[in-house]
């Protein structure tokens, strides 16, 4: 073997590593894949939260129309930032929004929060022990899932929803799902 080649080898290995490195650094290590994409929503049946003496929220409520499932908690700072937009979205009637009130230590905290700030949700379930959250593969609040007419998860957004994300990403998906269902 050529001896010179042996001396070039370390440089070559390093350069290859550096290229991968440069690409790898542009990716977000925290952004996990949406394992549920294209799969039916996991089965869950959650109790209602205090003050909303309806039937709670279950996976069987979802099929029939396109909807959003939003994971939130009164303890979650980013949810406070997201909340006004959800109110606005609910008022516009663009899409039904359901809520999963995740991991409240105090059972009154979630209902109080909604009472004070307004309640954008059609159905809300209480998930103190992360049953539904884990089934959805949630890592942190807020997360929002787009569920189609067949009750299949189509998209997951991690972090607070806002006007831009709604306009550029979520709404086009919903429009497409509705068009598919209509044809």
């Amino acid at each position: 073997m050529n001896k010179r080649l042996l001396f070039v080898l370390p440089l070559a290995v390093f350069l290859v590593l550096a290229v991968y490195f440069a690409i790898g650094l542009t990716k977000d290590p925290r952004k996990l894949p949406n394992m549920l994409a294209g799969k039916p929503v996991p089965a869950f049946a959650l109790q209602p939260i205090k003050g909303r003496d309806d039937k709670g929220f279950a996976s069987t409520d979802l099929p029939g129309r396109v909807s959003l499932v939003n994971i939130f908690g009164s303890w979650c700072v980013a949810c406070q930032i997201e909340h006004p937009f959800l109110m606005q979205l609910a008022a516009s009637g663009a899409v039904p929004i359901h809520g999963i009130d995740w991991r409240e230590v105090d059972p009154d905290a979630g209902p109080d929060w909604l009472k004070k700030k307004g309640d954008p949700y059609e159905l809300v379930g209480d998930d103190p022990r992360s049953k539904a959250a884990i089934a959805f593969g949630v890592t942190g609040a807020p997360e929002t899932f787009v569920v189609d007419r067949q009750g299949v998860v189509r998209y997951k957004h991690v972090g607070p929803l806002n006007e831009e994300i709604w306009r550029d990403i979520v709404k086009p998906i919903i429009d497409k799902l509705r068009a598919e269902g209509a044809s």
Binding site: L17, Y20, F21, I23, L25, K27
Partner: peptide, 14 residues
């Protein structure tokens, strides 16, 4: 140590 980063770089998942 670097493998998660390298795999992500080639789109191999997390």
């Amino acid at each position: 140590t670097l493998y998660p980063l390298l795999l992500d770089a080639v789109g191999g998942g997390k």
